[in-house]
């Protein structure tokens, strides 16, 4: 369960922790764009340095970033493998049926691996240094333009924050029900696929019932406290954009321009 991306916040008070979540979200998107603009090694080197500097500024040990990598490992190996074996090229080192390893394949695979690594490091940095709730707040703010097309931004944001708020509660509930059913002789860990799938029923049904109970209680409480819909509500929680955020944004702009110029000359 602790592999869930939601629970990965690493409490701290570093420079990166204190940046505005909106800025961190924007920079993450920008970074992904830059990764795809970059086609040459010097550009990757530059972006790699940015990542190393950011990780260092967060004060979080590298271990946690590597842990974030683990759930993505299969996807990375698969994609890199595809590039490695299915890219055709002139300098073929090894061939077996339709599979071949060529110089181009090797280079492509290396590029893909580096891209993956950089993106995952950057997004892990976001989730490690930003509380889930701040991310929800940031998203709500950034989605504001969608109100024009009648997208229920406030409702979605509230839903997101309530969902986040109930993650620990539902995890507790899951442990509790699992224990209760294990005490009644259910074995969640052994047996074949079908047996294990069957063992999930005594877990999933109570979990669903208890989610419905929670939802119904929560609805009653929210109505009692005057919740009607997203309109006409004021906000207690506000995001504060500070001068440092502007500086970082400007620096990122410079970096973007620099990277484009670099790519142009290479």
């Amino acid at each position: 369960m602790d592999k869930l991306i939601l629970g990965r916040y690493y409490p701290g008070d570093s420079f990166v922790h204190r940046l505005d979540p909106r800025l961190k979200l924007i920079l993450n998107i920008l970074f992904i764009i830059l990764i795809f603009i970059a086609q040459h090694w010097p550009s990757y080197l530059l972006l790699g340095l940015v990542v190393i500097a950011s990780v260092w500024a967060s004060g979080i040990s590298l271990r946690f970033f590597l842990r974030g990598l683990r759930p993505m490992l299969v996807l990375i190996i698969f994609t890199v493998g595809l590039q490695l074996f299915f890219t055709s090229g002139q300098h073929v080192y090894w061939q077996w049926g339709i599979l071949s390893i060529s110089q181009e394949g090797l280079i492509n695979a290396a590029y893909i691996a580096v891209r993956f690594l950089l993106i995952i490091f950057m997004s892990t940095l976001l989730t490690l240094t930003t509380q889930p709730l701040e991310i929800a707040d940031g998203l709500e703010y950034l989605m504001k333009p969608l109100k024009v097309v009648k997208f229920p931004v406030n409702e979605v944001a509230l839903m997101l924050s309530i969902a986040l708020r109930f993650v620990p509660k539902l995890m507790d509930e899951t442990t509790k029900i699992m224990n209760a059913q294990r005490a009644r002789g259910v074995d969640f860990n052994n047996g074949g696929l079908i047996k294990r799938a069957k063992a999930l029923l005594p877990l999933l049904i109570p979990l669903m019932m208890s989610s419905i109970d929670i939802a119904s209680d929560l609805t009653t409480a929210m109505i009692s406290r005057g919740y009607r819909d997203g309109e006409g509500r004021s906000r207690y929680r506000i995001l504060k954009w500070r001068p440092t955020d502007t500086v970082i944004l400007a620096a990122s702009g410079v970096l973007t321009v620099g990277l484009i110029v670099l790519e142009h000359f290479l």
């Binding site: 709730l133 924050s161 309530i162 986040l164 708020r165 929560l218 409480a221 929210m222 406290r225 005057g226 919740y227 009607r228 509500r233 004021s234 906000r235 207690y236 929680r237």
Partner: peptide
Amino acid sequence: VGATVADDVAFGMEN
């Protein structure tokens, strides 16, 4: 409802 204690106390007033 709120994600923190202060947020929860504010919820009714926000509404």
